[in-house]
Write a protein that binds this DNA or RNA. Structure first.
Length: 321
DNA sequence: CATGACGCCTGTCAGC
DNA sequence: TGCTGACAGGCGTCAT
């Protein structure tokens, strides 16, 4: 049911958040920091106290993203506030003066009290039910390929710890041919490669299934057995699906409210595969099925996405029969 | 280096 | 009613 269901943020959702932050908190100075849950800053090396100390007084000067990683550059050169939303993270911007009596969100983990350049107070809350997400203040390093790019900043720097993440499919500096080669050098199933954030980033379980459905490729097709045009078609499908979701989900940010859960792109545009077990395939009418792959659900059309012939020896697998 | 399994977390829901 | 286990699942870590 909508409202309580989980909507895991993938690239379009994170980009929508980044865009909202760019429009609502840039130029703000951090007046105060409250860490309500230490675990939510576990990636910050110096611990919660140091996390707050490093942020106090800093000005947020840019909002950038690569894949599902999001960061706010600080006016302290070479430092950034890194955020990953994990499975349930939200960044909520509000005006604390608008409704002083409003109760805090149940899953509030970190609060930043901000002051805008004109002196107006503003609040940035990190809310995260399942706490797979995190915030951290980290240094920035040059991108491995030396090229600018990414979304929201044309700077050639990324936070330390994000350098290993590949450019995403919406990044104009992405070398698609190189990604095709890298994917085809793998022996794993194509879905595993799609989810590998070091090859190309931003694709999660939901958009992976949608891309494979669209490209009519089974999730367990071996990467090194796919022809280059097939790999390219899968990547193109992933880009298309995410672009469409972004177009739909990105329209809900006129309010002073940055929300990854409220009007998520993939729910607004509708899904063709993910979560549709038992329902007819929109293309051929066959029943969509759910299977377990990599310990997570995979939804596919068994007719449009035929299973590859036998793969390697099923040594440790449960030979479900 | 490539590959794949595991655990971290909280909340919901089906089944007993 | 209350307990238990399955499920959701990104990603860092570890073993092979």
């Amino acid at each position: 049911m909508p409202g309580s269901g989980t909507r895991v943020p993938e690239l379009p959702e994170v980009e929508t958040v980044r865009d909202g932050l760019a429009r609502h908190v840039l130029g703000a100075r951090v007046a105060d920091v409250t860490v309500l849950r230490d675990y939510s800053v576990r990636r910050h090396e110096g611990g919660p106290v140091d996390f707050a100390a490093r942020l106090r007084g800093a000005v947020l000067v840019a909002a950038a993203r690569r894949g599902k990683y999001l960061w706010l550059e600080l006016d302290h050169p070479g430092e950034a506030l890194l955020a990953h939303l994990g499975m349930s993270g939200q960044l909520l911007v509000s005006d604390p003066a608008a409704d002083p009596g409003a109760p805090d969100h149940r899953h509030l983990r970190v609060r930043l009290d901000l002051v805008m350049p004109d002196g107006a107070p503003r609040r940035l809350d990190f809310v995260d039910q399942r706490t797979f997400g995190y915030l951290a203040v980290v240094g920035t390093v040059p991108t491995p390929d030396g090229a600018p790019g990414g979304s929201g900043s044309l700077r050639a720097e990324v936070p330390d710890g994000v350098a290993h993440v590949g450019r995403d499919l919406l990044d104009p500096a992405l070398d698609v041919d190189a990604v095709v080669r890298a994917v085809r050098s793998r022996r794993s199933g194509i879905k595993r490669a799609l989810l590998d954030q070091t090859l190309t980033s931003g694709v999660g379980n939901i958009y992976a299934d949608e891309a494979l459905w669209r490209a009519q490729v089974h999730y367990d097709r071996r990467c090194d057995a796919l022809r280059p045009p097939q790999v390219r078609a899968v990547l193109d499908a992933a880009r298309t699906v995410m672009t469409e979701a972004l177009a739909v989900g990105g329209t809900s940010f006129d309010a002073l409210y940055v929300n990854v859960n409220g009007e998520s792109g993939y729910f607004a545009r509708g899904l063709n595969a993910y979560g549709r077990a038992g329902q007819p395939c929109a293309r051929c009418g066959a029943e969509i099925v759910r299977e377990v792959f990599m310990n997570r659900s995979s939804y596919l059309c068994p007719v449009c996405q035929p299973r590859p012939r036998a793969r390697r020896s099923p040594r440790a697998g449960t030979a479900a029969g």
